[in-house]
């Protein structure tokens, strides 16, 4: 049975042993904690992309000059995006690959928009360590699978941008995009 005692500050303890002073300690520390978090938050969020960086987060691409079999590189969020007009032969070839043989199983249809399966739009960023693969520029090495080839560590992608060989874990990422008109694509 706890006795009611008086400490040096004249603070009475209640029967359960909790003093008024304990409440003050908890309240003070809680307020200081909340205040510290509130003060630290701006120091952390200032590191995130600023408004002008985010304002560059969408870009428009005119598809009309891109011939079948051709690809172009466009800049989006300071990173290359590959826009490729697949030939019917390439589409037939990638559709013939059994999904079970793929490291990151996806069909071409899952990686393109409905009715636009010839337009493959992917990030030009290797999913291994972020190098820019070859194959979008004229005359560049497209690698053993005729898609893209990363010179850094030898990852080879097929024409659907799917990883087929080498250290990369995933297919080339498909960014968010939509067809504004038949020939204009908005990325981001």
């Amino acid at each position: 049975m706890a006795e009611i005692t008086t400490d040096m500050h004249g603070d009475d303890a209640f029967e359960d042993g909790v003093r008024r002073r304990d409440f003050i300690h908890v309240a003070t520390l809680s307020f200081a904690g909340v205040g510290t978090v509130a003060a630290v938050a701006p120091l952390l969020v200032q590191m995130a992309p600023s408004a002008d960086v985010l304002a560059q987060s969408s870009t428009e691409v005119d598809l009309s000059p891109i011939q079948p079999g051709q690809a172009i590189k466009v800049m989006w969020r300071k990173q290359p995006v590959f826009v490729r007009n697949l030939t019917p032969t390439e589409i037939a070839a990638v559709d013939a690959v059994p999904l079970s043989s793929l490291r990151d199983p996806q069909t071409l249809a899952q990686r393109t928009k409905p009715g636009k399966s010839n337009w493959l739009i992917t990030m030009g960023v290797c999913t291994h360590l972020g190098c820019v693969p070859l194959g979008a520029g004229p005359g560049e090495d497209r690698g053993p699978y005729e898609g893209y080839f990363c010179p850094c560590h030898g990852s080879a992608y097929d024409p659907a941008g799917r990883i087929r060989k080498g250290p990369a874990p995933k297919n080339l990422e498909v960014p968010d995009y939509k067809f504004s008109t038949d020939k204009i694509v908005q990325i981001g």
């Binding site: 590191m47 995130a48 992309p49 600023s50 960086v53 969020r77 300071k78 990173q79």
Partner: peptide, 13 residues
């Protein structure tokens, strides 16, 4: 990664 870089790729920030 984006937070560390302050963008999607290394840049001004």
């Amino acid at each position: 990664r984006v937070w560390l870089l302050g963008g999607y790729a290394p840049d001004d920030a």
